[in-house]
Amino acid sequence: MTERTLEKKVVITNPMGFHMRPVAAFATLARQFQSDVYLRREDQRVNGKSPLDLLLLAAEQGTELTLEVSGPDAATALPALVELLTNYAADPDPEPPLPTKRH
């Protein structure tokens, strides 16, 4: 069986950017696949299975990332990872703002 590398461009639309929660969820999902997973931002390419690596992207809203998946289950992994990135991107920030307190 030939191993294919599949790619897909995704734009971060969440106002908070690709922050720690989506990063952790992404790495956790990526680790469930045998395939190698990378995310690229211009000439930066990081391991999609490592949260510490993913945080290096510091991808703010509007950043275009390229998802790169290669391995035996790439065809399954790619749409699942794209969906996670897209869903988190559409998700509003669920951390409730704290009331302003004056001291």
Partner: peptide
């Protein structure tokens, strides 16, 4: 959010 992302980076 930008400062936060750069600090995490």
């Amino acid at each position: 959010p930008g400062d936060h992302l750069r600090a995490l980076e």
